[in-house]
Amino acid sequence: MHSDRASFGLRAASLAGLLFLHLPILIIFLYAFTSEEKSYAFPPPSLTIKWFAVAWNRADIWPPMHLSLWVATASTALAMVLGTLVSAAMAQTRFFGKEQISLLILLPIALPGVITGMSLRSAFSIMNMPFSTLTIILGHATFCIVIIYNNAVARFRRLSGGVLEASADLGANSFQTFRYVLLPNLGSALLAGGMLAFALSFDEVIVTTFTAGQQSTLPIWMLQELVRPRQRPVTNVVAIVVFMATFLPILIAYYLTRNGSETAGAGK
């Protein structure tokens, strides 16, 4: 039998699934206000906002914060250039080896992060390259390329080749076509891709632990606090900051591309 109404069981299961995905995140917000310092007791004995001030004044949080922002910005910028170039090549033409290249772009996120991390670590070890901010950015830019690529290539496909030919017929050279035709059309897709790449890089910990050496990004700082907790409520506050730093760019990316046939974030 075919019907247009979902059965009760299906509706219940799908809603329960959505709740399962969202309730845990709300817990973090609750715990940032708890007055209990030593354990994860639920329910919180009472609520307070003092941990936000405590976290603000903690000197050890700011350097990782700045490093994370800088790394995310630099890797996003690099990935945007490289990702746009490769998507332009892949969308416009057919050539030998195209499938292999698309696999190569996908590989950094299809293989577990520990492999990307361990590979970079091996390479740095063989080349005697000391760990630095540069080694972190090298890793981050590599897995951000695919995010930009996915967003840009979908937009390129939608863009009709006729527009580019019309531009050429009207006397524009390749650079003018890029500046006045291609870029305005690609703009929101690139921005959305950039937002997602930023969120991914800001939050990345698996590859970063292998490439950071002694430096800590904010996620590495958090990981250390998770393994050996010092002041639990401060970690809760930082968790909210990290959450917002990834949440807002994702929402922006969604609103930038929601009217198109392709929406940002459909794959990570």
Binding site: I25, V205, I206, L226, F243, F247
Partner: peptide
């Protein structure tokens, strides 16, 4: 999409 993209570490911590 939001749980997919939001911070991995924060979710584990939750």
């Amino acid at each position: 999409m939001l749980p997919l993209w939001s911070s991995y570490l924060v979710k584990v911590y939750a």
